[in-house]
Simulated scan of single mutants.
Amino acid sequence: MTPATLRTLARYNAWANQRLYEACSRLPGEAISCPRPSFFGSILATLNHVLIGDMLWMGRFTGDESHGIKGLDQILHADFGRLVQARQDMDARIVTFFEAPLGDLEAVFAYRTAAGQDTATPRGLTMLHMFNHATHHRGQVHDMLSATDVPPPALDLVYFLRE
Rank of each mutant, 00 (worst) to 15 (best):
M1N: 12
A4W: 10
T5I: 12
L6E: 10
R11L: 05
Y12W: 07
N13K: 03
N17G: 01
R19P: 09
R19N: 12
L20F: 02
C24K: 06
R26T: 12
R26V: 04
G29E: 15
A31E: 13
A31G: 04
I32N: 07
I32D: 08
I32A: 14
S33E: 15
C34P: 05
S38L: 03
F39N: 11
G41F: 10
S42G: 14
S42K: 12
I43F: 03
L44G: 06
L44K: 05
G53W: 02
D54N: 13
D54H: 08
L56H: 02
R60M: 12
F61M: 15
T62K: 03
G63T: 05
G63D: 08
H67R: 14
H67G: 11
G68Y: 05
I69W: 05
L72I: 13
L72D: 04
D73C: 13
Q74N: 08
L76W: 13
L76M: 13
H77S: 14
A78H: 00
R82D: 15
L83Q: 03
Q85N: 14
A86L: 11
R87K: 15
Q88K: 11
M90Y: 06
M90D: 07
D91E: 12
A92M: 10
I94K: 04
V95E: 01
V95G: 05
F98M: 04
F98Q: 03
L102V: 00
L102A: 01
G103W: 00
L105M: 13
E106V: 04
V108Y: 02
F109W: 07
F109T: 05
T113E: 04
A115T: 09
A115Y: 02
Q117F: 02
T119K: 02
R123S: 02
R123N: 03
G124M: 03
L125I: 14
T126P: 03
T126C: 01
H129M: 03
F131I: 01
F131W: 02
N132S: 11
H133D: 14
H133N: 14
H133Q: 13
A134M: 04
A134I: 02
Q140M: 07
Q140H: 12
Q140V: 02
H142S: 14
M144L: 09
M144W: 00
M144I: 02
A147R: 14
V150D: 03
A154D: 10
L157T: 14
V158H: 08
Y159G: 00
Y159N: 07
R162H: 15
